[in-house]
Simulated scan of single mutants.
Amino acid sequence: MAITDEAIQNAEARMAAEREHAHAVSARYDRRSRRLIIRLHSGLELAIPPRLVEGLSQATPEALSEIEISPSGLGLHWPQLDADLYVPALLEGQFGSHQWMARQMGAAGGRSRSSAKSNASRANGAKGGRPRKTQA
């Protein structure tokens, strides 16, 4: 497949538009606060606990300290962990893939406590509990 000059110009225009929004100029791991500190071109700094980010939750401080910023500033890479983050997605509250985020939200929902959930559990228990699965 041949890449045309027009395709290159279009790609460069898209990249320039993305860079207008948010790109990282520096990134580091702060051991004292146990947070990733990401400084954006606007001066905004994000402080994110690694446990919230896909691929970083079990990482050692040494591995977290080695961060590479892509030339565009739109991506962060941890070479020791082979983990990547897209900076604009961080600003949208996405700390991993859609599948990973869905698992995190499902786990949080399962741990939640409410009076409605307690009442439903009691009512289900009074009926004999969860029905057994039948073999088809």
Rank of each mutant, 00 (worst) to 15 (best):
A102I: 08
A120G: 11
S118N: 14
W100D: 01
R113M: 06
M101K: 04
R122C: 07
N119H: 10
N124A: 14
S118Q: 15
E92W: 03
S115F: 10
A108F: 01
M105E: 12
S121C: 05
F95V: 01
P88Q: 08
S115H: 09
A123P: 02
Q104C: 11
A89N: 13
H98W: 05
S118T: 15
A116G: 04
A89R: 11
L91V: 00
S118D: 15
A107I: 09
L91A: 06
N119Q: 14
G125N: 15
S114M: 03
K127Q: 13
F95I: 01
K117W: 02
S97C: 08
S112F: 02
L90Y: 07
A116N: 06
R111Q: 14
A116F: 03
S118L: 11
Y86L: 07
R113A: 06
W100P: 03
F95P: 00
A126P: 02
G125T: 10
R122H: 12
Y86V: 00
M101I: 10
R111G: 06
E92L: 12
A108Q: 05
A123H: 10
L90I: 12
W100K: 03
R103T: 11
S115L: 14
S121N: 09
K117F: 02
G106K: 09
G109N: 04
N124K: 12
R103S: 10
G109R: 01
G109K: 02
P88M: 11
A126T: 02
G96S: 08
S118P: 01
R122G: 06
K127H: 10
M105V: 13
A102D: 08
N124R: 15
N119V: 05
P88K: 09
R103N: 10
N124P: 00
S121G: 09
K117P: 00
R113V: 01
G93Q: 07
E92F: 05
L91P: 04
A108G: 02
F95Q: 01
A102W: 05
S112D: 08
R122Y: 12
R122T: 09
A123S: 14
